[in-house]
Design a binder for these strands. Sequence first.
DNA 1: GGTGCCGGGGT
DNA 2: ACCCCGGCACC
Length: 444
Amino acid sequence: MEKVLTVTVLPRSRLGKRSPLGALVCNSSAEGLADVGGHGDTDGAPGIRAGVHSVHGVHKVKLYPGQRVYVYCGGQERPGVVEQHNHVDNEVSIFLQQLNQHVHRKLEDVWLSPSAGAAHSVSSSIDVPKRSVESVDMDEIMAAMVLTSLSCSPMIQSPVHGEPNPASNGMDTTAEMSDGGYWSCDHGNSSPAASPPDAEADRTPSVDDGLDMEMDQMLFDEPATRKRKNSVKVAYRCLWPNCGKILTTIVGMKRHIRTLHLGQNEQERCQREEDFYYTEIYQDAEHPSVPTSCGSPSSPSHQRSSPSTPEPLQPSLLSQSAPSSSWQVHSEHSYQAPPPVVTQCKAVCVPAPPRWTPLVTTHQSKQAAPFRRRSVSVGEQWLQNNSAPSRPPHLASVSPPRSHCATRRVRGEAKKCRKVYGIEHRDQWCTACRWKKACQRFLD
DNA sequence: GGTGCCGGGGT
DNA sequence: ACCCCGGCACC
């Protein structure tokens, strides 16, 4: 099944056999959605809880928005409709129609069928499309994927914006952009002219990407995700072309979609289709704006490569990474003299020539590193004078000129292996001496 | 010129 | 990681 999914659904099959997403989608489409709780219910236990899926070795059950579930509330079991399933907390947000209120329950506390009525067929109580597993087709698989992605926070997908990858090429940018567009772009003027289902199909690749990412986040980045989810306000945005209406309740949004977009006669046929036409949006308390920025599609690269954002980042990254790399450089050889010299030399260092002021950060980081004093060789001087000024900053930062404020290690007073053993007993030298490195045996 | 050793290349 | 060596600074 996984194979089918991987090959059929995902254009770029990146899901390995053990891919969590593969497993989830698999379950979502075949068990989680079409056959939740009804499959493998061989022990005949009534009042199946969603969590019982773990009995089948499935640890994550996907409850999709609109799915009918049962929970205990006010001392009795009440039917409700899933609004949101938070995989991270394993918490389900449920709307209880009877009480007209929203509740949050742990997944374990959610029933997929009423506990009353022991012989109640599980599958009959579950509000699922009446289709067999064999009839799982593209639509259903895609639906599973879309629903899965809908139920997860778009914030999860947006971290890319936080740390733009300078090396990302056009392809990457495009993919990410379409992703962002999917989540939050205003459909008022930038929506595709295609009909919504087509639009949905068009988006599928991006959903794939997003899904991939968010699964990674969900499974491997839980703390961060949880932290974020708790601090955001949830709203729902209508994805219908030229609509973009935002409502705070999922029920209201569904009603909006049904009445305004789907129409009454389509209501039956598209029982759950309204799920496809809205998306959750999150408003962070700290950043009161829609998570994924929503630039005009005409200038997609503007967001990422805008000089204001990534550029300041670069120096800071450099200034953070450069020292460590310098440290690494200077300590990479185990035979080298230990750091005592370091503190001494740090104090001796002087700033780099003013010519390099644009690269202040690079030099500052470099300053911290040098261990020794070193004068400029003719060749180096020439390089510095001729090629350096015309060298683009990023190249310079990649391979900065040797810092000539550096100190070359003062020649030690101690005798070295060469002197002690003589060149004829080279095999008795310490390794460092043999390699023409700083003597390890006779430290200064 | 001898020596120490850094930076870099090869495996 | 290990090994080698060109090249430079210092003596």
